[in-house]
């Protein structure tokens, strides 16, 4: 016999089901994860690869520059979500140790200098036109490259801050115990690896767009191709493409594993968690989850990129687009379904 629950409460955004976060938060979490991935990839390149071997244009300059742009867009989305905007400065008058959002707001402050330093390291060789006009960029780059320890430091800073940022985008949700779907620490690594996979995919996509005309896919995205062209000077070294593909496949595999663990944890937990998981597995979010996240967001690009690595097919933009769409969908689904998941489902009646 089902329990009949009725409430007279009718708060906007709360009833009949919680929906206080719209598109802004999933977009912000997606972009945050993507930027985290870009930072980590760029950081790893700086730390592990010798300067001469670095061929750093895509990963270490365009990546961070794109990252700065995307992060700003993400923060704009976050700002748009705030309902008491004039008081946003309050974030920076305090540090609340128990609040992931407080952590996040301070981490975001560290992201900008780290990304900027990363971008500046190889800027003159990547974008000679800018360097010709502003000699300061050359001076900065020379200064940094002359000091291997600084390079390593910038690289490590990007890795550390990137990991923190990536984890934070998941922990932000998992620290809200009221929503069973979010109530798992796996969200941290899940969003981190999803961020890494989208970042690798984005870089790979940029790389594909900068291939010679004959190799460029017919459906090349106008924006991204012009971005690649904007670098004029030297064409990016396409030898890095398989590396990115390989990395992306590893990230996707880990992400898939984490998703499976996430769902296993849910379905083997309390009724509230089971109900929450059902939202994704069989409920209103099942179609986008299975199709866009699991199918075309993870399994399809894994297959395509495997075939690319086997040189059975050409490198195309397709896996990148699929991974990015999958990553964004994952954030939307988890944010929306998470809000709907509840300890006690209340049937509101007129």
């Amino acid at each position: 016999m089902p329990i009949e629950l009725t409430t007279t409460r009718h708060n906007p955004g709360i009833d009949p089901t919680l929906h206080v976060w719209g598109w802004e938060i999933p977009v912000y979490l997606f972009l945050g994860g993507l930027v985290a991935g870009l930072m980590i990839i760029a950081g790893v390149r700086l730390v592990l690869v010798q300067p001469r071997e670095r061929q750093a244009m895509v990963c270490c300059t365009i990546g961070p520059l794109v990252g700065l742009t995307l992060l700003s867009l993400g923060m704009l989305a976050l700002f748009l979500d705030l309902s008491h905007k004039l008081y946003v400065w309050r974030l920076y008058l305090t540090f609340q140790i128990t609040s992931p959002m407080s952590w996040g707001s301070w981490i975001l402050l560290l992201v900008y200098p780290a990304l900027l330093a990363n971008a500046l390291t190889h800027l003159p060789e990547a974008i000679p036109s800018v360097a010709r006009r502003f000699h300061a960029f050359v001076a900065i780059s020379d200064f940094i490259l002359a000091r291997p320890r600084v390079v390593i430091g910038i690289g490590l800073a990007n890795i550390v801050v990137g990991v923190a940022l990536g984890l934070y985008t998941g922990i932000l949700l998992s620290a809200l115990p009221a929503r069973p779907l979010w109530n798992t620490a796996i969200l941290g690594p899940l969003f981190l690896f999803s961020g890494l996979s989208t970042a690798a995919a984005l870089l790979h996509g940029i790389l594909v767009l900068s291939f010679k005309d004959g190799e460029r896919p017919a459906f090349a995205d106008f924006l991204l191709s012009s971005l690649a062209r904007w670098s004029e000077g030297r064409a990016p070294d396409t030898r890095i493409a398989p590396l990115l593909t390989q990395a992306d496949n590893s990230f996707l595999t880990v992400e898939l594993g984490l998703l499976i663990l996430f769902l296993l944890g849910m379905v083997s937990s309390t009724a509230a968690s089971q109900q929450a998981a059902a939202l994704l597995l069989t409920g209103p979010y099942a179609a986008p989850f299975w199709v866009l996240v699991i199918g075309s967001g993870i399994l399809a690009p894994l297959t395509l990129q495997y075939l690319e690595l086997q040189n059975r097919i050409r490198h195309t933009l397709a896996p990148a687009v699929l991974v990015l769409v999958g990553g964004l969908t994952l954030r939307f689904i988890l944010v929306f379904a998470g809000q709907e998941s509840h300890w006690a489902r209340v049937a509101s009646l007129p």
Partner: peptide, 22 residues
């Protein structure tokens, strides 16, 4: 404290009783 609140709505999402609103 109204004048400290930025309206991030984390507390709304955090409450298992849905007791808060914007």
């Amino acid at each position: 404290a109204h004048r400290q609140c930025i309206g991030c709505k984390a507390c709304l999402a955090a409450c298992p009783y849905d007791a808060r609103f914007t």
